[in-house]
Amino acid sequence: MNITVLAVGTKMPRWVDEAVHEYAKRFGRDINYALKEIKPEKRGTGINAAQGMAAEEKRIVEAIPDGAFLVILDERGKAPTSMELAEYMRVWQQNGEHVCFVIGGADGMTDTLKQKARLMMRLSSLTLPHGMVRVLLTEQLYRAVSILHNHPYHRE
């Protein structure tokens, strides 16, 4: 199964990159995981939030793998449990889906981009720093895979 995470933002703190790498390497051969950074649009000097999100949308859409099952992370999305996420993963894997998760920029994402999603999901009702979202998403995806493999990482 292929999983791509598109994350607006570059130059994360080292601990973010290390944590994402740690969880990503745990997937094993079953999951091909890739995190791709999307350059954020600079704000100010005549560029407002809407213009910035539109520019970021263009970069995001260009980076979405062809035919991918698009999951947008959004504060108004569905908040699955770890078990529900594992079930999503089981179905995606069974259907041979290439799943693409999108983490938007500081101002969020355009409605146009959100409408392209096959699933809108939230990790928390709290506002989280972008680096933390990368780590949390990768850990939860690993957790979902461990649930599917009856690995003792997840405890109920």
Rank of each mutant, 00 (worst) to 15 (best):
Y142P: 00
L6W: 02
A7E: 11
K42R: 14
E41L: 01
G28N: 05
P152G: 09
M1V: 13
T81N: 11
K25V: 14
S146L: 00
T81S: 15
G52R: 02
V99I: 10
I72D: 02
M83W: 06
D30L: 13
Q140R: 14
R134E: 06
G44D: 03
K36W: 05
T45W: 06
Y33R: 01
R43N: 08
Y33S: 04
P65N: 01
E156S: 13
G67R: 00
I147V: 12
E84L: 02
Y23W: 05
K25S: 15
D66E: 14
R134H: 06
Q51Y: 00
L123H: 10
K11C: 06
H151A: 08
A49H: 05
V99P: 14
M53P: 12
E41N: 05
K39N: 05
P40W: 00
A7C: 15
M12F: 15
V91W: 07
Q140N: 09
S82A: 05
Q51R: 12
P152Q: 11
G131N: 09
S124T: 13
G46C: 02
S146Y: 00
N150L: 10
M120P: 09
M109R: 01
P40S: 01
R122D: 06
H154V: 01
M53H: 03
H98S: 07
T110Q: 03
R118Q: 15
V5A: 10
A86G: 15
G131Q: 09
A106T: 12
P65T: 03
V99G: 11
E75S: 08
Y153V: 06
R14V: 12
P65W: 04
R143Q: 05
R90M: 06
M121Y: 09
V16W: 00
V8A: 11
G77L: 01
H151M: 05
K116D: 00
R155A: 08
Y153C: 09
L123F: 06
A63N: 07
Q51I: 00
H149R: 15
V135G: 04
Q51H: 04
